[in-house]
Amino acid sequence: MKAYLSIVRMRFIALLQYRTAAVAGVFTQFFFGFVMVMVIRQFFFSGDAQGAMSLAQAVTYIWLGQAMLGMMPWNGDNEVIAMIRDGNVAYELCRPLNIYTHWYCRLLALRTAPTLLRSLPIFLIAGLLPAGYNLQPPPSPAAFAAWLAAVAGALLLGCALSNIISISTLWTVAGEGMLRMLPALVIFFSGSLVPLPLFPQWAQAIVNFLPFAGLVDIPNQFFVGTLAPAVLPLMLLRQLAWTAVFVLIGAGLLRLATKRVVIQGG
């Protein structure tokens, strides 16, 4: 925990020094958000959403996705991956500490710091946009609380997934594959490309069952009000269950890799 806090602090300081990067990031996310909002608006004007969600909800959903983009697990921990690629990971693997937890904590910090830094300006500005383009506040304090809880769940889940990406690069080819394939799946099935409620009726059960919904869609739906705060325990359970699955897979892979390194003599 202490290690986690100190990594968060370090990351935060590092990020603050890169103020140009932060401004550039916010600008980019804004630009994307605008284009996406304009597209979704025209779709809403051209046809009927058949009750899936209102335009205002969809727009808010999109802005949330942009604001919380820093949490998306579309890559691993670049420093860990670099360490794996240049072979220095062998030392790390032989150290008497729990590497999985260590890497996981690093990821938690990596995802928290930029999100805190970048989400605030986006919330603020997107909230002040003219009606029809703006991010709207959650319908109730309970919805807001549920959103916060689900964001925490999304963070835990996302880091478990990211850790698998990092760890899989221990196997060169498979790792490259994961690095390339996973982002596509994450973007599509998490709801950050198109809000999941707008997916076809028949696909709802599938996309909601998949782990990726827990990354973006579940928190967002609490915020916009398409999910009632009452179902929070169920949704958290879903996020945590998938987190557990990914942690088990990641830790298992890491154990396998460690064994391999030890057998080869480092």
Binding site: Q42, F43, F44, P183, I187, F188, V194, L198, F199, P200
Partner: peptide
């Protein structure tokens, strides 16, 4: 990545019919 992005457009057309 390319296929999936087009999938996003398909989803919206499936829901709304036209743009």
């Amino acid at each position: 990545v390319t296929v999936i992005e087009f999938g996003g457009i398909w989803v919206l057309f499936d829901r709304f019919g036209s743009l």
